[in-house]
Nucleic acid binder design. Structure first.
Length: 617
DNA sequence: TCTGCGATTATTTTT
DNA sequence: TAATCGCAGA
């Protein structure tokens, strides 16, 4: 489809900071891709002078795909990645100057939480049961670009934060937020480095700008310099990440920060039928903290939004499954046209059980890594690299580390710090020290085991080796461990263990198909997804389930943000939108059975756009 | 440090 | 419901 005049103007306006406020379905992603193309094709910039920032890795890949479709071969692509990945790149290229450990590791949130617990242990063990709260607080400080020295010392928080940073460095690790903070610090301190990256970011295009947090914004400003090539794109009404420190205030204040900035809007919604857009607009206008924008649907005279009013989740699952089955049998829709959206938790389980019974494929997010999986992977990491202090730290907390508890861990850590050696070396040295007499036997056994596994590694094929390790740990019967071992079979024959681990890391959090079929079959599947991660996607048919009071909006949450989340969910639909409510829900997590009223959001949609369905069966 | 039992508590996500 | 957490006692 050719660009509208409105879009064309946005694509071609260059030479000053540009803010684009664009509602759902107005073609944000398209405009971003087209702008990159425009810059390159008109020689306004080389690919080395353009960087595109997306919110997720998946979105980055989609952007690259779009550029390919538009006829830009991959070798002509500029850098397109997440801000975290850009920050990582900047830091890796300047590890020494930035004062970071060479080949620093990135601690995932589990590893970071262990290190925080160590920090609390060192500063004030009494607080150790509150570690979750402290973790959250430190996270939010980092999201505000605040370092330990920037905070007032209340309740030991400053000391704990300080110690946490020390211990991260001791483990040669940065947490996710450090990536942003350290990159900012590096650019602030070193003019030449700053200029080098500012040159690379001469044209910096940022998608999903409404979800940026202050620390990220700070980094973006450093990279953008004067900002004449800064192009930011978003919709304050779709800001749904305040729990990560994101705030719509940043996008709304952009033109105050960049005085020469121009603001443009995109107002034609190509995605949603009239009644959905009008209903969604009526809803979102109940928010105060927003900028009102026009949003014109391309009128398709589609039917109204459907409000599915069920007696129970069982009835809901049956009705939805039946509807899906019939529409597929009747060739009206394919599985890939349909999405089931939910706020979170296991609310979609019942439907996810029903749908595959009719031989209809589904895609669901893969469940989180379990403790056992983490331990298993920690072993594998240690076998490939004994200096992986993070993996060693994970091991030390595991059940497998017999007789080793918080005291031993603390002693080992303190010993390593005061002798300036690696945690792994400490395990070996400690066997000779009297102080560690109590643990000598167990430490030696562990060191020997890792050495022994390391020898086995070279003798066995990868999958065999993994089975051996699982057996050694007593995990051979664990289904979730088997899953991991299965994945090793997807790799080309003769792949190394480190390649396998790399692959696992990359797959983490990736949405995977439940069943293994041909790739095509897998893709033609009903999508089960949270309202948060559906942002940026669209489907012909959308079911939003869990429309219950106190569940959505969730009690104790920010109602305006929940409303924005609902707005995002509603506006994913290209064709049909079902809002599903069940009076009785038997969530496994809902302490048995619970009775609900419908979500108040339902009543914010004017009656003329919505029509109830009451299943009888 | 370990074991076992009862209490607790379950969102949303970035490499 | 189920996994994890926290506490008490060995």
């Amino acid at each position: 489809m050719p660009l509208t005049p409105e879009q064309k103007d946005i694509v071609q306006t260059t030479g000053k900071p540009l803010l684009v406020l664009a509602g759902p379905g107005t073609g944000k992603t398209e405009v971003l891709a087209q702008r990159i193309l425009f810059l390159i094709r008109n020689n306004l910039a080389t690919k080395e002078e353009i960087v595109g920032i997306t919110f997720t890795t998946k979105a980055a890949n989609q952007m690259k795909d779009r550029l390919k479709q538009l006829g830009l071969p991959e070798d002509k692509h500029p850098l397109i990645c997440t801000l975290h990945s850009l920050a990582t790149k900047v830091l890796r290229e300047n590890e020494k100057v930035a004062g970071l450990p060479t080949e620093f590791m990135i601690a995932d949130s589990y590893e970071a939480s262990l290190i925080l617990q160590d920090a609390i242990e060192d500063v004030n063990p009494h607080l150790s049961k509150n570690w979750k709260k402290l973790f959250e607080q430190i996270f939010l400080f980092k999201a505000q670009n605040k370092r330990p020295e920037d905070i007032d010392d209340k309740k030991m928080l400053k000391k704990i934060y300080q110690r946490y940073q020390e211990l991260l460095r001791f483990h040669k690790a940065l947490d996710f937020e450090d990536l942003i903070l350290e990159a900012s610090a590096l650019l602030e301190k070193h003019q030449e480095i700053r200029e080098f990256y500012q040159n690379k970011c001469k044209n910096l295009l940022v998608d999903e700008f409404q979800d940026i947090n202050p620390a990220e914004y700070h980094l973006i400003k450093l990279l953008a310099g004067e900002g004449n090539g800064l192009f930011v794109l978003g919709d304050d009404d779709q800001s749904i990440y305040t729990f990560r420190g994101g705030t719509p205030k940043i996008i709304l204040g952009f033109t105050k920060d960049f005085k020469s900035a121009e603001e443009k809007v995109m107002t034609t919604c190509f995605r949603c039928p009239d009644k959905i857009i009008l209903g969604a607009l009526a809803l979102i206008r109940n928010n105060n903290d927003r900028r009102d924008k026009e949003l014109k649907p391309i009128n398709r005279n589609a039917g109204p939004i459907k409000f599915l009013d069920c007696k129970s989740d069982v009835q809901e699952a049956r009705w939805i499954t039946e509807w899906i089955k019939e529409s597929i049998d009747g060739k009206e829709y394919e599985p890939k046209d349909i999405a089931i959206l939910y706020r979170g938790g296991d609310i979609a389980d019942k439907i996810a059980e029903e749908v595959p019974k009719f031989n209809i494929h589904i895609i669901r997010p893969s469940p989180e890594e379990t403790k056992h999986q983490r331990e298993f992977i920690a072993y594998l990491r240690l076998v490939t690299d004994r200096r992986d202090s993070l993996a060693l730290r994970v091991y030390l907390s595991s059940k497998r580390a017999k007789k080793i508890g918080p005291i031993a861990i603390k002693k080992l850590r303190n010993y390593a710090e005061s002798n300036n050696c690696e945690l792994w070396d400490t395990l070996i040295i400690a066997q000779k020290e009297n102080e560690f007499k109590r643990w000598r036997k167990y430490l030696k056994a562990f060191v020997d085991l890792i050495e022994q596994l390391n020898k086995k590694l070279s003798q066995l094929p990868l999958t065999e080796f993994l089975i051996q390790v699982a057996k050694t740990l007593g995990y051979e019967k664990e289904p979730r461990i088997k899953e991991i071992i299965e994945q090793s079979k997807d790799l080309p024959e003769g792949s190394s263990l480190s390649a396998f681990l790399e692959n696992l890391r990359g797959r983490k959090g990736e949405k995977t198909a439940e069943r293994k079929e041909s790739a095509e079959d897998r893709e033609n599947a009903v999508l089960f997804i949270t309202m948060h991660s559906v942002k940026g996607l669209e489907r012909k048919v959308v079911f939003v389930i869990g429309m219950e009071k106190d569940e959505f909006p969730k009690s104790n949450s920010n109602v305006e943000e929940e409303r924005r989340l609902f707005y995002v969910a509603m506006t994913r639909a290209k064709d049909k939108l079902f809002l599903c409510y069940a009076k009785k829900r038997e969530g496994q997590s809902a302490q048995g059975v619970n009775f609900y009223d419908p979500s108040p959001f339902i009543f914010e949609i004017p009656e003329e756009y919505i029509e109830p369905i009451r299943p009888t069966a």
